[in-house]
Each structure stands twice: as C-alpha cells, then as structure tokens.
Simulated scan of single mutants.
Amino acid sequence: MHGEYKVPGGKLVVADVDVRDGRLANVRISGDFFLEPDEALETIDGALEGLPSVLEARDLAARVDAALPPGAVLFGFSAAAVGIAIRRALSHASDWRDHEWRLIHDGPQDPALHMAIDEVLTQEVAAGRRPPTLRVWEWASPAVVIGSFQSLRNEVDPEGARRHGVTVVRRISGGGAMFIEPGNTITYSLYAPESLVAGMSFAESYAFLDDWVLGALGDLGVKAWYQPLNDITSEQGKIAGAAQKRVAAGAVLHHVTMAYDIDADKMLQVLRIGREKLSDKGVPSAKKRVDPLRRQTGLPRAQVIDRMIEYFRGRNGLVTDVLRPEELRRAEKRVTEKFGTPEWTARVP
C-alpha cells in the first residue's frame, strides 16, 4: 500500500507498507524532506515495523518520536506527518492529481441558492455523479452566512441587517458568521471525495485543503499561513476563514471566504458578536484584525480570482465546467424546502 502526505508549507512524506496478520510490514518511509542523522530513516522504519495496523496516526507518531535518537533533526516534516502518511496508505487515500478536477464559476446567485448548491454538489460528489469540483462564488446581494450551530439572535442584529439590505442565511457547516458584500469577498468551495483527506483528523484536513491557496497567495506576494483551526492569516491580519462538512456517503465540503475589501463599520452594525470577538483578540478595530487582499495585493478582485484559479490548475489540473440543469433544479428545490425557510434559518433561535 502506498500513501503520500504533503506537509502544509513543508515537504512530501511517502509511505510504502504491507500488512501481514494485522501488523505493518516492509515499512519504507521516503520523501523530499531533510533528516539528520542519515541513520534516523532506518530508525523510523524500524519503529513502525510490526505495529498493529489499526493504530491511529497520533499513536504511530508517538512510536516514531520515542525511537528517534537524541538530537535528531526533522526538517520539512515531523513524526506526525509520518503517521498521517502511513494512515493514508492503509486507507487507500487519493491525491489531488488522482482526480480530474472541475471548475464552476457562474454569475451572481442569491445567498440561499449558494447554500443549497453547496449541499447538492457535495451529495453529487459523494454519489460519484460529479467529479471533484472547485466552485468560485459570485454574490447577487449582501448577506450574513451563519454557521450551522450558531444562534441567530446572538449573531445578527436584525435592525442593522434590514437597514443595510442584508439577507441572513444558514449554511450546513459549522463555524462562525461571515459578512458578505458583492465585490468585497472571494468565496470558494471544494467538493471532494473523502479519500482525499483519508487518514487525517478534521484539523489536519483543514491545513491540507487550504495549502494550495497559501501557494496562490504567495504567488500574489502575500505571505500567508494556516492558523488553527480554520483561519488563513498574514502579518497584517486575518485574510480568510474556512468551514467544513463531511457527509456519511463519502464526501467532504470545504469552503472559504476571503476578505478582498471590507466595510468594517457596516459589518459591526450587522453582526452582534463582532465587538466581543475583537476584544478577545486584543485589537481595537475590525480593520486591524482583518486585512483585505485589495490592500495586500493592489490587484482588482477579478484578477486575484483568475490568478488563484490558474495556480490551482497548474498544481492539480482543472477542467472548466458548469452547474448542470438537474443540479440547479435540485438546488432551487432545496431553497424552497430548506435554505430559504425561516425554520432553517432560525433553527437555533
């Protein structure tokens, strides 16, 4: 069995392993990482040999850590990365390039329809009716998108939302509220088979699925990194927030909203929780906590999106696609039945 794990911001770790009588055999770890002393690689392989194949990644990592000689230097990877690579081999995990990725970048759509499209496309990938897909969103109107488990009354000031013409919708993933204005955000979703993140915890999969966008931002001159659990940030402030949902049928939805520009004063008039979050971060204003891509790149929003898409295409492959008529019909039906209803939006009052 063969498994690969690209450490976010680091190096590739490859695991080749057999299983005999429920135990690891013929373990071989390799990759483009750096390791001193040379003999430590044999130590890592030996530490894994004969271990039960049911051990979790963290337990495998602990065995590696315990076996490494004092002063061993692992550069570009870690014992945790080795454990993940082994689990991915045992789980028959897939890699980005194992799939023919599709791109959907349609015109502006209503907030509730975006929520429904996310649900439908995740189900389509899980059922094998759609290849893994990257969808870039365009917004038809201002919105607040609250997480699946957030309290509506605690998050949104209804008077502020009415005054600014903001629609409130609830998504299927957890996490915090997002304040959206057309032209001021960059939002995208990844719909992928669960095999892509096999062997990883939720936290590890966030970093893994965000790694490509860190590379894209780097090409734009923005030095950004993953901030656990679900933020992308830079020295100037937070750039983006991610959320994730896995469905039992075997797919993962990972979506990200990035701040291209932001009207912080308006945001704080619509979101109740804003001031508390800011005080918790020890910063005096949203403008200082969130640093938009417009200022950091100096590029038009459309150009930032195009550069991100081309980076993804060069790294993982990408074929231009559209939302299929039957997918759109299902999504519109879900708006009527679920995402456009007060019962769903206020399901946590």
Rank of each mutant, 00 (worst) to 15 (best):
G298F: 07
D280Y: 11
K338V: 14
G241I: 03
K288H: 10
M308K: 03
L214C: 04
V247I: 15
G221N: 09
T257E: 10
K245Y: 15
R246I: 04
D263L: 00
S285D: 15
D321M: 02
V222T: 10
F339E: 02
R295L: 08
L268I: 01
R324Y: 01
Q236L: 06
R334W: 11
M258R: 04
A286P: 08
G218N: 10
M267Y: 03
T257G: 12
P284F: 00
E327C: 01
Q227A: 12
R315Y: 01
I305H: 04
T320E: 15
G282C: 06
Q269K: 13
L318N: 07
I273K: 13
Y226V: 03
N316C: 13
V319R: 14
R334N: 10
D219Q: 13
V322N: 03
P228E: 14
G237T: 05
M258I: 09
E310D: 15
H254Q: 12
R313C: 06
P292N: 07
A249W: 00
D321W: 12
I262R: 02
T336M: 06
A264T: 13
F339P: 02
V290R: 05
D280H: 12
L217Y: 09
A286C: 03
P292C: 04
V283D: 04
L229Y: 11
L268E: 13
V319S: 10
A242V: 04
V290C: 03
E235S: 14
G317R: 05
A251W: 08
R295P: 00
R329N: 12
A240K: 02
I232D: 05
D263W: 01
K277C: 03
I262C: 09
L328T: 07
E332P: 02
R301C: 06
I232F: 08
A242S: 15
E276M: 10
H254N: 11
I232S: 05
L229R: 12
F312W: 14
G221Q: 08
A331T: 11
V290A: 02
L253T: 02
L299T: 03
Q303A: 11
P284L: 01
A331L: 11
G215Y: 02
I309D: 05
R307C: 00
F312N: 07
Q303W: 03
M258K: 01
V319G: 00
Q227H: 12
L299F: 03
Y226C: 00
T320D: 13
P300H: 09
D219A: 10
P292R: 07
A251M: 10
L268H: 06
L214M: 12
P300A: 08
Q236I: 00
G274I: 07
K245V: 13
V304W: 04
A264S: 13
V283T: 12
R289Q: 11
V304A: 01
D265E: 14
F312A: 11
E235N: 07
